[in-house]
């Protein structure tokens, strides 16, 4: 399989306090085209920081970044801002946890979905952009995309907003979609729909997905491979089946144990 993303010895250290704080320690990852990899961990495990580093969203000062992030043969971690910007929103799309705050409340949905086309495809005509936006909204299974196009974020429910976010991230047909806890703020029934949607997009468009979550049962449904993180370190990684059915590390076992089972608790 063709390699899309490679991370070698990624280290991230915060320097904005008196004592430097290491949040990611020797992180390694290889991601092939069309693969879905899940990063699982509890809060403070460094999973979100890793995602931000790949997306080029880390602050430029007050932190030390070591290692390499190679996306299609190009090193991104130490690249200049303008170089990174060429990838952001085009080849690398990202969706966030809070669908309430990740959309601009004063802009119409259509405007926000089209934004990355406006930047990365400046030659595209207005009509073509509109056509692509509607197509993208329809693609994420929103009913009446023409209506949604003209609406504002507050008129939509949380699940619909997250779909809009996915549509905006997918409009340039990125090769890599980074999903940082995309379902955490949503209701359980909606969570399932979003996971199924991501699965379908992955199959139809061969988009690689980096799925970051604390919910093991969702990760198990969606991902081909899993990386378990704890305190900035990789605890265990392997195929979903391996990690779930033959966990090697104590911490992974603990995490799997913690998934509630359908049996009465007896103290």
């Amino acid at each position: 399989m063709e390699r899309l993303l490679e991370i070698k010895n990624l280290n991230i250290e915060f320097h904005d306090h008196d004592i430097p704080e290491r949040v990611v320690n020797n992180f390694n990852l290889e991601l092939a085209k069309g693969e879905i990899v899940g990063i699982v961990g509890e809060s403070g495990s460094g999973k979100s920081m890793t995602a931000m580093a790949i997306a080029g969203l880390l602050r430029r000062h007050d932190m030390e970044k070591k290692g390499e992030i190679i996306f299609e043969g190009k090193e991104l971690l130490h690249a200049s801002r303008s170089e990174v910007r060429q990838y952001q929103g085009d080849d690398i799309g990202m969706i966030f946890q809070e669908p309430m705050t990740s959309l601009n409340p004063v802009k119409r949905i259509g405007w926000q979905v089209e934004e990355s086309l406006r930047i990365h495809r400046p030659d595209m005509s207005k009509e073509e952009r509109y056509r692509r936006a509607i197509e993208s909204l329809r693609d994420v299974e929103l009913e009446e995309p023409e209506k949604v196009y003209r609406q504002y974020p507050h008129e939509l429910s949380g699940g619909m907003r997250q779909r809009v976010m996915i549509a905006a991230a997918m409009i340039c047909e990125p090769k890599l979609l980074i999903a940082d806890e995309p379902t955490t703020a949503l209701d359980v029934t909606i969570q399932l729909q979003i996971v199924k949607l991501l699965q379908r997009l992955n199959q139809e468009k061969q988009t690689s997905i980096l799925f970051i979550s604390h919910d093991l049962s969702l990760v198990k449904k969606l991902c081909h491979r899993i990386i378990v993180m704890h305190d900035g370190n990789i605890v265990e990684s392997g195929s979903t089946k391996e990690v779930f059915y033959q966990p090697k590390e104590e911490y992974t076992k603990q995490l799997i144990q913690a998934i509630p089972k359908l049996e009465k608790l007896i103290l």
């Binding site: 509890e42 144990q257 913690a258 509630p260």
Partner: peptide
């Protein structure tokens, strides 16, 4: 809460209930 903590709190509530 984090998943491993969730289980602890659930057990605590059950224990107090009993």
């Amino acid at each position: 809460l984090d998943v491993t903590i969730q289980a602890q709190i659930i057990r605590l509530l059950l224990k107090l209930h009993k």
